[in-house]
Every structure is written in C-alpha cells, then in structure tokens.
C-alpha cells in the first residue's frame, strides 16, 4: 500500500470488520440445519480481515489475527480430523456424527454434535487459507 487509504474506508472498516466477524460466527452456528456453515462463515470472517488489510495495513491485520494464518489451517484440519475420529470410539465409520442433547431449561434443548466441531475446523481452515493467500499478495 503506497498511498494512505481513504478516511472513509478506514472509518467504515472500524465498524464493519467487527460486525463481519460477529456475522461469521452467526453463520457458523446456524449452518447445520439452515444455510450457512463453516465455509461461508470462514469466508465472511476472512473478509473482515481483508478489509482491515486494505483500510489500515497488513501489519494491523496480522496483529489483530494474532496467529499465523498457516497455523490456523493446521489447527482447523486437526479439529476436523478429531471430530471425525471420535466415531471410532463408538465403532462407527469415520466422520459419523455423534450427538448430545443439552437441556437448557425444561422446554429448551440444544443439540450439540461432532458435525459442529467439524464445521469449526472448516471455519478455521477457510480463514487460514484465505488469509495466507491474501497476506502474501499484500506483501508484494
């Protein structure tokens, strides 16, 4: 980035980036039964960091992310792998979903399962992979 980014962009990014990150979490969590999921959530989250890169600088985006994007990829794949390997404990084929019912109140029950964990893995991997590409382009 040779020239200073515009003031309008910077001011907007200050508000939009956190909202995008929040929205990405919303997408991730609603994804199992409705449109959304780890992949689209990950892309939206990566967009938040991309805007930071363009509105401020590469260093800012890296600092906010805290970890190297390639590490995110590795952690994401590991999480996905672990979510699938759990099925072997129940003598089921790889990636078979295991579900728990979590009663919050007498009427509300949350269903949690390994597919959500898998989606978290996808989410992290997509953020990591997208940002690895973006950051190396931004370096040039």
């Amino acid at each position: 980035m040779s020239t200073l980014p515009s003031l309008i962009l910077r001011t907007a990014v200050r508000w939009i980036s956190p909202l995008l990150l929040l929205f990405s979490l919303f997408l991730l969590l609603r994804g199992h039964h409705e449109p959304g999921g780890g992949f689209s959530g990950g892309l939206v989250a990566a967009t938040g960091f991309a805007l930071l890169t363009f509105g401020f600088s590469l260093e800012t985006a890296r600092r906010v992310l805290r970890v190297a994007p390639t590490t995110l990829v590795a952690v994401g794949i590991a999480v996905a792998l672990a979510s699938g390997a759990g099925a072997f404990l129940l003598r089921s084929p790889f990636l078979t979903g295991i579900w728990f019912k979590l009663p919050l109140t007498s009427t509300m029950v949350i269903e949690l399962g390994t597919p959500l964990l898998f989606d978290v893995g996808v989410y992290l991997t997509v953020i990591g992979a997208t940002l690895t590409m973006l950051f190396s382009f931004a370096e040039e």
């Binding site: 590795a74 792998l81 003598r91 089921s92 790889f94």
Partner: peptide, 22 residues
C-alpha cells in the same frame, strides 16, 4: 475393518499435520 480401510487416508493426514509444527 472400518478403521483399517480408513487408515491409508488418516495416517497421511495426521502425519502431515504433526510434521508441520516440528
């Protein structure tokens, strides 16, 4: 059997991940 048949995929994936940090 399920495990044995999945191992040729699981071993490379796991090792690829484990070898990255070291």
């Amino acid at each position: 059997m399920d495990l044995l048949l999945t191992l040729p995929i699981l071993i490379p994936l796991t090792w690829s991940l484990v070898l990255y940090p070291v």
